[in-house]
Design a protein around this nucleic acid. Structure first.
Lengths: 207, 207, 207, 207
DNA sequence: AATGAATGAGCGTTCATTCAT
DNA sequence: GATGAATGAACGCTCATTCAT
């Protein structure tokens, strides 16, 4: 098959996108180079031409999803002077991001199964700033200053709580649906959980 | 190689245990039949003799971890008359179970990556009771009756909160350690998080 | 599964019959020991208990079909004083035997693919009389004596002609049906061919 | 091992030829992929690279032998104005073709054992013209016009007779040699049978 | 007389990857 | 800059068969 385009950057991008989907669905071990090249309307050979190896491609996918999340967090504009409202917005953002980017959730899960083997190889990921902690910290500081939050809050713990409540619900949707007997992905179920997790986080901050 | 034993049940059990470890570490796709047979001091052939296929073996592993969790939950004895104490015990149990059974966490994560493809094939898992919901429900009912909990609690949501806080911390330990710059698995960190998640759950139940 | 019967001879016979069907359908290489044991409602182990090996079983199947054909030929009663009528009967017998015993045709074909490797190992097959040549010879002798057949007939050649016309039609039915565009196994097609082959044989004997 | 050549067409052809021999000798089930790749001085992997599967390779072998026979038939030049001579030539051609191409005979036999399972999957075989029927038909028409043949001849039946007499002798040579006590493949035996089968066919056409 | 347990060798096939131009 | 040809190593799985009682 002749290449779809002669534009190297485009071919590269198509491969990267196809790889993201493939690794999301099948993990690193289950991901197949030939399925990626086929989905990208390219060839196995080009993957090695552009990326060098399956693992290097996987790492670049990983870097991509982290970069995108960081960019999205940076784009957030919050009015910190109203800490509770700002926090609601941040929780909503986090939740919606997970919801809109199942590949992020899936890739993290897979990476953890591999004990972070690939992510530790990425220099780029280490250098990446993750603005969310700063944002959250500013919100908490202001809330504590105003006396509407407990004075002994630790930003990491609050982040863990927020992330856990959103991530777990989505990452474990299949086993949870079986166990709880509901389809957790129905629109109203999702909305209901968003409310609930917001309530839980806020309750945990009360003085 | 001569057989380690001619006891069928033992051979079977050794394979099953080896498979659990293998699938925990590498997932279903990454799990290797020959590594399992070697670890079980048996042969590839015996895996097919006793289980029929890699997938059937995987499913039986899945059934095993679910069964064991159910049994452990059933063995819990709680004094429901003191709801808060009972809840603390239940949270501690859940947390310690995840901690002591990393294979449970890993296998669930992997199964979710596969969209529950294998677990839905298991008749046994469907028939399994998961006592935790009943236990939690009894605690909540009594707490609401005593007026120490909010009157509008839903057991499923409280369960999700409790499970999420424990599970996420452990399932995502590697990416979180990178992100937060701490080793989350250090003893004091774990203890600290157990306290924190207990605090969060209890705070979320307050009237 | 408990054995269907404790009668050794019966079990043995069931295996032999199942093997005949299996080897007819799949040949020697394609024949599977476990399919045979399953079809015979026995176990692989019993096949080795009674027959020793797959090949020995195959050879016994081969001996069986040859023995049965010999017995059927022996049971033929022909009035040789009317050679043409007798020959018609013999042709009809041969044709109908092939038709009623597809396993005979299939096993011969398979054995020839293997260059007679197994049949040459059977002492029994070598000792077996095949009465058809004697019968045919008596018919031809009488026909020549009466002057209604060519005087220079050779029994082997006439046998080959008769056998070829019947056997080929049936052994090659699938490729022939594709090539000729007809279903050769339809009742009227078979009947028509029986007439034709009789006509051809008789024409070839005319003085 | 370094490749014998980097010419794709050549590698492909070597595999195809080796496969033909392998499947002739052992049938489809008995044919071994690694024996083929070894005989072709290639590797198992290349068989899958070029053909996709053992079955696809087998089908292409089948298509090959059919195509070659069709080509050989097309190359036949016969003077139809002398029907009997033309027919003798056609019979000789058919006989010699079977004799020179034992793989054709063997592959047909094997395919029939499999009930035509593979040949029916080939689109190419279906589209192939088999000129022999046309040629034979022209001969018979002219012979009937000249009055030297019976007026009620059917081309398919005459073809079956001709093919049967040649094919059966060769396809069943091993069991027949055992049964008749002769080596049918000796030169003079073959020549003698060619004469005999020609005599039989011609006798069957006489008015 | 009968059988459950066990196996070495090999099966067709797929894997990520490199060669050579 | 791009690609068709080629591959070693492993994959999940099946084969006929034997062990041990």
């Amino acid at each position: 098959m002749p290449p779809v385009t002669r534009d190297a950057a485009l071919t590269r991008a198509r491969i990267l996108r196809a790889a993201r989907t493939e690794f999301m669905r099948h993990g690193y071990s289950g991901g197949r180079v030939d399925r990626i090249s086929k989905a990208a309307k390219s060839s196995d050979r080009m993957i090695y031409y552009y990326f060098g190896s399956k693992e290097a491609l996987y790492i670049e996918v990983l870097e991509g999803v982290y970069t995108e999340l960081g960019a999205a967090e940076s784009a957030l504009t919050l009015d910190v002077s109203e800490p509770e409202a700002a926090l609601r917005t941040l929780i909503a953002f986090t939740w919606n991001y997970y919801l809109a980017h199942p590949e992020f959730v899936a890739l993290l899960a897979n990476e953890n199964m591999h004990r972070g083997r690939h992510i530790t190889k990425s220099v780029k990921v280490k250098q990446l700033s993750r603005p969310v902690l700063d944002i959250l910290d500013r919100i908490l500081q202001e809330g504590m200053r105003q006396g509407i939050f407990r004075p002994d809050l630790e930003v990491k713990k609050v982040y863990l709580t927020m992330a856990a409540l959103g991530y777990f619900y989505l990452s474990n949707r299949y086993t949870l649906s079986t166990f709880l007997g509901d389809d957790l992905m129905k629109r109203e179920q999702c909305a209901s959980w968003q409310e609930e997790m917001t309530r839980v986080v806020l309750a945990s901050l009360k003085p």
